[in-house]
């Protein structure tokens, strides 16, 4: 049985959403994966079902995957390579106070 064009469109329209979870207060949201959903409200619920069912988080973000601008693998060297040989850019010249877990 062939799908009607309406059904086909409804199926084709489920876009991808990237999911970010904040595991506890004070930490930033971390990318954990992605879900398909027809809209933002359902994306949030699908993300909850997949990524926070076991108390993994206190806050969720979903972002349309096609709204993310990513750096290109071809530009890896110009983007990231120069950072490696400049030690003064790295925060290695002071000591982290004891008790600071998440810097």
């Amino acid at each position: 049985m062939s799908e009607t064009s309406q059904q086909h469109r409804a199926r084709a329209e489920w876009p991808l959403w990237e999911v970010f979870v904040r595991s506890r207060r004070g930490l930033s949201h971390t990318h954990v994966g992605s879900v398909h959903a027809p809209d933002a409200a359902l994306a949030l619920r699908n993300a909850r079902d997949l990524y926070t069912r076991r108390s993994e988080g206190v806050s969720l973000w979903v972002v349309p995957a096609d709204r993310i601008t990513a750096s290109s693998p071809d530009e890896k060297d110009p983007f990231f390579e120069p950072a490696a040989d400049k030690a003064y850019r790295h925060p290695t010249f002071y000591e982290v106070p004891e008790g600071v877990r998440n810097l």
Binding site: W14, V35, H36, N46, D49, L50
Partner: peptide, 11 residues
């Protein structure tokens, strides 16, 4: 109908 919904109903 969709994998995500499969998971939601199972939950």
């Amino acid at each position: 109908p969709e994998l995500e919904e499969d998971v939601a109903l199972a939950n």
